[in-house]
Simulated scan of single mutants.
Amino acid sequence: MFESTFKNFKINFNTSNARNSFSSGDIITGHISFDLTKETKITSISMALTGKANIHWSQGGGGKRRRKHYSAKLDFFDLKAAIVQENGAVGKAIKLQPGTHLYPFTCQIPQGDFPSSFKGIHGQIVYSLTVSINRPWHMSKNFETELNFVNHIDVNQPELRAPLSGSNSMTLCCLWCSSGPITMTVSVEKKAFLPGEMAKVICEFSNASSKTATPKVKLQQKQIYYTHNKVHQRIGYRHLASTTGEPVRAHTSDVHSEIRLTIPAASALTISNCSILVNEYMIEVNLSVIAHPDLTVLFPIILCDEPVFPQPPTVLYTD
């Protein structure tokens, strides 16, 4: 039995950042280690570095056979290399003695615009390193570990640093009467954020109605899945975080409010460079009045892996 001979198998990486992440073009170095309980013959130890995306969903009723299934797959790369191989001159297997064995490895992620790692409702993007131990007259034994792959974007793009703003208004109606308008003007200091960062939402409210309105800020995730050529699609939404501001009393105007929303640290990065899977985020600002539709302003934002600093305010100089 393999498990009784090979013990404590580990794949160890030498990473250069605290997040243990890798990106396009990175050279991956590390080593594998294991313990042998007895003398063992192997033909080779090989490795495969892969990046792929796959999506699947089904719809319809009446049991599995009647449900319609949709799926798509993408292979970004599939690289193979040997860590240890038999002596090609004599074609003999290698004898390994009992004890601890350690073998270094090196490989490189290809250059390319590959999407970040992601696991969602109906699909995933996975990068992995698989080590295979091959023995004479035995099936190979595989050990797989996933890599945290990050797609770096240019955080110096002006549109990522610029503030976002929007406004909306409504008038409450009840049968034949109506009240004064409710208005809100909202701004977010920038478009791009880090997971775990706090977003500051600046709100200006006026409530000329006879009812109290309550502001609420939410972070929504939108996942879109496509079959090839985007013939079919499936959209899924997830509510990730929310916070409530101070109520805006009836017959008040020029109410200033600053609402802070923390983006969950475990949030996946934005994905816009994959043909079968898209991951988007938006900050949703609502002003709620009981028994009436919410007044809403939406801000599309981007989650990236590097800090983006807000655009400094314009200073006007006068003589």
Rank of each mutant, 00 (worst) to 15 (best):
G51P: 01
N273R: 03
E39N: 15
M184E: 12
A48I: 06
S178H: 14
T145S: 08
I290L: 14
S267V: 15
N8P: 00
V297P: 00
M47G: 11
I133S: 00
D319C: 15
N207R: 15
L277D: 03
H122E: 04
G166K: 09
H138E: 05
T252N: 04
Y281A: 15
R66Y: 09
G123E: 01
F76R: 07
P195N: 12
T106K: 11
H152A: 06
I224L: 14
D319F: 15
Q85F: 10
T37Y: 00
Q220K: 04
P104C: 10
T227E: 09
V255S: 02
L277M: 12
V188L: 12
P215D: 06
I125R: 01
M139H: 10
L96P: 00
Q221Y: 04
V155L: 13
I94G: 04
L160C: 09
I45W: 04
L295C: 04
G60E: 13
T43Y: 14
P247G: 14
A291E: 12
P115W: 03
Q111P: 00
H122A: 11
C177S: 07
L316N: 09
A291Q: 13
L164M: 12
H228C: 03
E39S: 13
H31V: 12
S267K: 13
Q233I: 07
L36N: 00
Y103E: 02
T5P: 00
P115R: 02
H232R: 08
A199F: 05
L129N: 02
P115F: 05
T43G: 09
N54M: 15
N156I: 15
A89R: 11
E204D: 04
M170V: 05
R66P: 00
I109A: 02
F193Y: 15
G62W: 03
T50K: 15
G62H: 08
C107P: 00
G60I: 11
C107S: 09
N156G: 09
I94A: 07
L261P: 00
E204M: 08
S253V: 03
W176M: 11
I276S: 15
T100F: 00
D75W: 08
L295V: 02
H228M: 08
Y237I: 03
F309P: 02
L219V: 05
D319I: 15
T244V: 08
F2E: 10
G236Q: 08
G51K: 11
P181L: 09
S167V: 06
L160I: 04
T296R: 05
S210P: 03
C174Y: 09
L219G: 02
I133E: 02
K216S: 12
A266Y: 05
K92M: 11
R249V: 07
S33L: 02
K95W: 10
L194Y: 03
S58C: 13
R234C: 04
P104M: 10
H152W: 03
E146S: 06
S257I: 07
E3T: 11
M198Y: 07
Q108C: 13
